[in-house]
Amino acid sequence: MRVKCTVNGEKHEIDDVWEGESLLYALRERMGLPGSKNACEQGECGSCTVYLDQTPVCACLVAAGQAQDRDIVTVEGLAGEEKLHPVQQAFLEAGAVQCGFCTPGLLVATHDLLEREEQPSDPEIREALAGNLCRCTGYEKILDAVKLAASRKAEAAT
């Protein structure tokens, strides 16, 4: 089948999509957007988190066909032309990235959290990111990164 959707503001049209293909496969293998990661492909690790019409979803659990006429934003769509998004910059500076395989999903999840809650508390951050597994960092520096991004966003707003 043919699927048409918008990804990171660009219109995509992909052909010969097999009915069983996930949105994650379509992004990674058909659209040249491998930033969303294939760590578990069963909705447990959050590494493939993308926005589907402004709602964060695990792209591995969405059939590619369900993306028809939908608007998708992936990790590749977070940064501006010249500059990283504050959430990306914070993860980089706080040391929240080691192997980095969980990072794309955590960035989208954090982006979403800070859209909903400008200054989340530690328990709120933990709850919001509980669906994103990381095996390298022990999460301490991820927590730091989220708080750093929140404070940067607050500074920018004043």
């Binding site: 491998p34 930033g35 990790v75 990072t103």
Partner: peptide
């Protein structure tokens, strides 16, 4: 390699194509 990792452009082994 941090910038590539936060932009999704770092090429992992499963991204080879």
């Amino acid at each position: 390699d941090g910038t590539l990792k936060v932009t999704g452009e770092f090429a992992y082994s499963s991204d080879m194509w």
